[in-house]
Amino acid sequence: MIYLFQLVNGIGLGMLYFLLAVGLSIIFGLLHFVNFAHGAFYLLGAYLVYDMTERGVNFWAGLLLAPIIVAGLAALTETVLLRRIYHLPHTFHILVTVGLALVVQELVIILWGPVGGNVSPPDALGGVFILGDFIYPQYRLFVIGLTLVLAIGLWWLLEGTRLGAVVRAGSESTDMVSLLGIDIVRVNTAVFALGAGLAGLAGALAAPIRGVEPFMGIEALGIAFVVVVIGGMGSYTGALIAGLLVGIVQSVMATLWPEGARLMIYLGMGLVILTMPRGLLGRA
């Protein structure tokens, strides 16, 4: 029975990891850009919800506004700074985005202080769901449901819309897409904003579960990279499968071998790198 609990818990964790990682994966897929500032967008999303709820703004409004603001800031960053370095080698991407992440982290400390804070879940979801021996926080169930809806919506966006077709085509050949008369620069900005907005949403959703503190972005970035490396860089489905795998392994291991729960995630990533260098569903 306990493994069933851990499975459900793992799915909850995994959907959050998926949301965090899919943006990173999409950005890499289209832009071939390694974004080490992804955790900073997660951090901003969490702190925006924290700030708004502290000021008395309704949690739901905060949950809606935070990712939009993060996406807007990301679009601005992409336009002003990042698009100028796309053509440079990956080492420059890392250098600039790590610097950006540190700037965001320090700004968070200056604006909100080095001490973290707590975000209460909305009253309607503050309780627990009980079914026999199964007890699970209502808010975490809501997160599972919402991320599931978002995953379907995102899949539809990428697979069933013109924008999705452009993004997929762009990830194959940006030159060809440009030759077809599509403004790939604007598409790049939109995709970067979408990816960062998803990270912001993951941060906003995670705030009532984890609380907020200025260093949460680094931890999130680590998990996001693990998921993307396991799933395969640029793969939506890979991010979903890997996110769920990581969440379930982490949760089930908490019963099987608690002290090794975190180790197993990184061990799993190491195994994937050794046996499938492109990840489960990655491309060359």
Partner: peptide, 20 residues
């Protein structure tokens, strides 16, 4: 008892053990 590493941030798995 649930042991965890010094870098752990997610405790829901351990708490599930505790509740069981």
């Amino acid at each position: 008892n649930s042991y965890h590493s010094l870098t752990e941030k997610e405790f829901s798995g351990y708490l599930t053990n505790a509740m069981a």
